[in-house]
């Protein structure tokens, strides 16, 4: 555990809590892509199956449980509790275009051809693209509420901090997880355009981010 890894996990937790509280308090999921949230719940489900097979640390177990509970609770809020405010018309990204390639790649490129390892690889590749429906929805509606942009900022920052964590671990302990690093780079690159808009529009300009 190093400072980048801890900051990354905290940033990830902050992002998930920001989104959950936004929907819960505003009693609305307008502007939020339910598809992305389902994909994130799927990422955590397929990645954290080792909750039942190995105990790494209390921190590891607790964080996995928190991420799982909050992601499913968010999906519940969107599709059940506040489904009236769910904007299904603009949340039209074809997730099968993500799931099929990611599944295929997980079978091709993995560390071991075992169910747990393939599911872990699937979750790594899926996480890299899971935000696409949300980013697509923002380009379609042409705007995003400021709270949503803060959610996306911390979500994008978390994997960027993990990249720093992997650089640190490579130099201090020779650790190198090729699949996670390559996927993490791709994932962070997808946020670059958003980061630019976030800094230039949200932090400097008006609260709302409206795309050109």
């Amino acid at each position: 555990m190093n400072i980048f890894r801890l900051a990354g996990d905290v940033s990830h937790l902050v992002a998930i809590i920001i989104l959950f509280l936004k929907i819960w308090k505003s009693k609305s999921c307008a502007g939020i892509s339910g598809k992305s949230q389902v994909l994130f719940a799927l990422v955590f489900t397929s990645r954290y199956l080792d909750l039942f097979t190995v105990f790494i640390s209390a921190y590891n177990t607790i964080m996995k449980l928190v991420f799982l509970v909050l992601s499913y609770a968010t999906v519940y809020l969107i599709y059940m509790r506040f489904r009236g405010s769910y904007d299904s018309e603009n949340d039209s990204f074809r997730v099968e275009f993500l799931l099929v390639p990611v599944t295929g790649l997980a079978f091709l490129e993995n560390y071991a051809f075992t169910p747990l390892e393939i599911l872990w690889t699937f979750s790594i590749f899926l996480e890299a693209v899971a935000i696409m429906p949300q980013l697509f929805m923002i380009t379609k509606t042409g705007e995003a509420e400021s709270i949503t942009t803060h959610y996306l900022f911390f979500l994008g920052l978390y994997r960027a901090l993990y990249l720093a964590n992997w650089v640190w671990r490579y130099h201090t302990e020779g650790f190198f997880d090729q699949i996670a690093v390559v996927s993490g780079v791709v994932q962070t690159i997808f946020y670059c355009d958003f980061f630019y808009l976030y800094v230039t529009r949200v932090l400097r300009g008006s609260g709302k981010m409206s795309l050109p």
Binding site: R5, D9, H12, D50, V54, I56, S57, N60, M63, K64, F67, Y111, A112, E117, W120, Y162, N165, F175, F176, D177, Q178, I179, A180
Partner: peptide, 10 residues
């Protein structure tokens, strides 16, 4: 591959 089967990260 540099298989890292120690999944200590989230």
């Amino acid at each position: 591959h540099t298989g890292q089967c120690n999944k200590d990260e989230l």
